[in-house]
Design a protein around this nucleic acid. Structure first.
Length: 422
RNA sequence: GGAGAGAUGGCUGAGUGGCUGAAAGCGCUCCCCUGCUAAGGGAGUAUACCUCCAACGAGGUAUCGAGGGUUCGAAUCCCUCUCUCUCCGCCA
């Protein structure tokens, strides 16, 4: 969420941000400011009354100590009368606070000035392309290869769980494991701390990173125990430091974490979900950074470069998109998507998304750092995939296939295989 | 799952109704002293919100696991919940 004081001082900026992110109605800004005004007035009223009451109560204590019972009784009468009013005001304060916060949570993050203004994916900037898309026309899509070799078992996945929950078999299971290892090793080399995280989170965590209230339909829910299955490691890892004040020397924090990710993906169909393109469960290696505000845009660039480096090491052509305001989501200030070329499908597949949330997530989860002796400041948070597994597997299978149907092992993964072909 | 104990500031740990936002110790910061080291002396050291102020700052309110209750007044009494620890059971 945004800082209410920021909204007060930058009303037009926030309204413009709402429009740029694709919402027509900006009246929520007026509403939240009005609600805040009402809440503050009520808080003040309550504080003043309580102050008066506290003074009187301590006087009662003194008088009792001196044995002046009658005088004390007189004041008790006064404070008794105040009790009811204070209670009513407290209830009003609570209601007004909730009203304000509910509105506040529905205001999206403000895009960074460098972000192109636009409505749809057509307005994204192609920030960078690397390598040449492989146009050999005999290249098969990955699902033909996996079917021929029995490397991914979709049917048994359906039997055991349902659509979108495949089994990976033999060499492709090994390939995936090798990639996970490789990605984590590279991140650790780059100064990230390896983390293994819970796969379920509670409601506070889901709110902390912004899945609630904006995207709760993407998550699977375990109602009996009030858990959500994680849609990405971003959720547990960013919440790792929720409600903490980090020391200056502890910042930046950089974490790498591999987890399965579960997404309901309601409404997907057709070629989007063919093969490994879109699944309900997939593995991902996630990178999370907690940084000082003044460093967050440099950190975003280094995050992007790191993720791009993984694709380059695998020699997979890709492009990097700078997402426009309308295509980047509620919580981000700036976001890059990395798309790998799928030569068997002749299309780009998103394998990473690197975002700066500025203080939007950190404020929700009260994640701060001690800037100076007295000064405490909200941190900025970032995350990026490094990388999402199934689509990288697809791209590797398709890119490294030979005419006889065999698939070569990428050079950087050879240490994990001790052989040339899957 | 059964039985018991507990939850207080960065940490340890006092505190059973008013003068306790909280003793004491440790840690940390600044200052003083000592030729160095060791030791010693003094001051400071939670967070959120509100009001006033151009600002420095001043004042107020809340917070002793969470929520509710009793009371003029709650860290302290009562209720509910959560979590932690110990023992037993079960278990990769």
């Amino acid at each position: 969420m945004l800082d209410i004081n920021y909204i007060r001082d930058h009303k037009e900026t926030v309204e413009q941000a709402i429009v740029n992110k694709g919402e027509k109605d900006t009246s929520i800004v007026e509403k939240v400011l009005a609600a805040d005004e009402k809440w503050r007035a009520k808080v003040h009223e309550g504080d003043q009354l309580r102050s008066e009451s506290n003074n009187k109560s301590s006087k009662i204590g003194q008088l009792m100590g001196q044995g002046k019972k009658e005088e004390a009784q007189a004041i008790i009468k006064e404070t008794s009368a105040m009790k009811e009013t204070i209670k009513e005001i407290d209830e009003d304060v609570k209601a007004l606070r909730k009203e304000r916060d509910d509105l506040l949570l529905r205001i999206p993050n403000v895009p960074h000035p460098s972000v192109p203004v636009g409505a749809t994916e057509d307005d994204n900037d192609t920030f960078k392309t690397w390598g040449k898309p492989d146009e050999r026309d005999w290249l098969k899509p990955h699902w033909e290869l996996t079917e021929r070799h029995g490397w991914v078992d979709f049917e048994r996945g359906v039997k055991v769980t349902g659509a979108g929950f495949p089994f990976y078999v033999g060499p492709v299971a090994q390939l995936q494991r090798a990639l996970i290892n490789y990605f984590i090793n590279e991140a650790v080399k780059n100064g990230y701390t390896e983390l293994q995280a819970p796969y379920f989170v509670n409601e506070d965590s889901a709110r902390g990173t912004g899945q609630i209230p904006d995207k709760e339909d993407m998550m699977y829910v375990i109602p009996r125990d009030e858990f959500f299955t994680i849609p990405t490691a971003e959720v547990p890892v960013t919440n790792f430091h929720r409600d903490e004040i980090l020391e200056l020397k502890e910042v930046p924090k950089k974490y790498v974490c591999h987890t399965p990710c579960w997404r309901r993906e309601a409404g997907s169909y057709g070629k989007d979900v063919r093969g490994l393109n879109r699944l309900h469960q997939f593995d991902k290696v996630e990178l999370v950074k907690i940084v000082k505000p003044e460093d967050s845009y440099d950190e975003l660039e280094s995050l992007r470069v790191h993720a791009e480096g993984l694709l380059e090491a695998l020699e997979l052509p890709y492009r990097t998109l700078l997402m426009c305001t309308g295509d980047m989501g509620f919580t981000q200030s700036k976001k890059y998507d990395l798309e790998v070329w799928s030569p068997g499908q002749k299309r780009w597949l998103e394998v990473s998304s690197c975002s700066n949330f500025e203080s939007f997530q950190a404020r929700r989860m009260q994640l701060r750092y001690r800037k100076g002796e007295k000064e405490i400041e909200i941190v900025h948070t970032l995350n990026g995939s490094g990388l999402a597994l199934p689509r990288v597997v697809s791209a590797i299978l398709e890119t490294y296939q030979e005419e006889n149907g065999r698939v070569r092992v990428p050079e950087v993964l050879k240490p994990f295989f001790n052989r040339d072909h899957l």
